[in-house]
Nucleic acid binder design. Structure first.
Lengths: 124, 124, 124, 124
DNA sequence: GTGGTCTAGACCACC
DNA sequence: GTGGTCTAGACCACA
């Protein structure tokens, strides 16, 4: 389920963190669902428990999950997780589009790409 | 001309590197043009010469510039730099849009954001 | 009557403990009054009996209650509980105010905050 | 300068963190000043470098300091550090006053304490 | 069983 | 030199 890439400069804990977030976004992890235990996931990934713990702590700080000593870690039940994700993606989009504009990539190209994702790929 | 941001986590050498690339892409640096000397740029930026040297080495490794010991560093005449960057950004955009689609962000929202960047921000 | 907050990092047993103390301080629990049975309170709160037991043990250790095996737990007749708590809070307040003074927070601001709590919030 | 208490439940990294903050509040650490290096402070305190690193990372996240790989850690130059501290202390004060009000500590007592700090101790 | 903290020691990228 | 990350392994408090 999780997949780590040791070649990239992105730290392991951040890869774990990002994947949990995208699993939430994809609906694979649902609100209030229990996450794998720190030690469990660590041994699954062949990684030190501290590394997974750091990822979970970051996720808690960001509000995506809630960890309770003695009970486990759970996807937040706050219904605004999806809203958090949406607004974050919107920000990423804006930042990317600004970079593209400075390169003089025409507005029309963006529109074509957007349509290709939202229309042609609808059947996927 | 160059502007460094010490608050961000992006390393200094990478900021220099990225700015050279965007200057090439924007046509500010033209093929075969000579880059500022390492020591010169370093003192302009108030930065260790090693840092600038590292940026130049990376740029040479990536094919954007060529360095000739004793003469200086020059922009490569690779005319396809802009195209390379464009297609890279397009891929990033596609990937991001796919994630946004799985979150059911409406196509209309993307269009609004895109317009806001490409129309309203045009004066910036 | 008791209210647990699972989001906070304060352990459950400590939340129970704190609430018993404040109930004593507020006169809701009176000296020699019997506390709810461990198993009863545990099931009311949807919590492990060990957790309630730990809270009661702490309370006994601190002298707020006495437990008699086979009979139950009872509020101590220490009538000075409230005074103990008050002087503790007064000390915390002094320490905090001293820190605020070193930051040059004006006396007037403190007065405003105090009034806002003790006057405007009186209806709560 | 720093003093650790191993008896309390407050984790070491948090004690370090709190002390840095109060040193800022007291004007001992000034904006843009360099903090002791992670390893240096760790060996001074007889503590593992990771523990100090965690404290510094928290402080950076909170905006009190800025850390740069290869250069060191510095007190933030944003002039609003003091404002951050002030508003945080105000919040602590409110929370404490609310607890005191539920104990029916009279408003007059608070006023007396406040005056004793802000007037009588002025000569200290 | 859970997560939280800490130590010991290592390696890396950066300046 | 600096901070950032990771491992190995340990202990603790909590439920």
């Amino acid at each position: 389920m999780f997949a780590l890439d040791y070649k990239t400069k992105v730290p392991i804990y951040e890869q774990i963190q990002d994947q949990v977030i995208s699993f939430i976004a994809l609906g694979i992890f649902k609100p209030n669902e229990q996450l794998p235990a720190v030690r469990q996931l660590a041994s699954d990934l062949g990684v030190n428990p501290n590394t997974v713990a750091k990822a979970y702590q970051e996720l808690e700080r960001l509000g995506y999950i809630v960890s309770q000593t003695g009970r486990g870690s759970f996807i937040s039940d706050t219904s605004n997780i999806i809203d958090m994700l949406k607004s974050e993606y919107i920000e990423q989009l804006k930042s990317l589009l600004r970079k593209m504009k400075t390169l003089n990539i025409p507005h029309q190209d963006i529109i074509l790409v957007t349509n290709s994702i939202f229309k042609k790929e609808r059947q996927q």
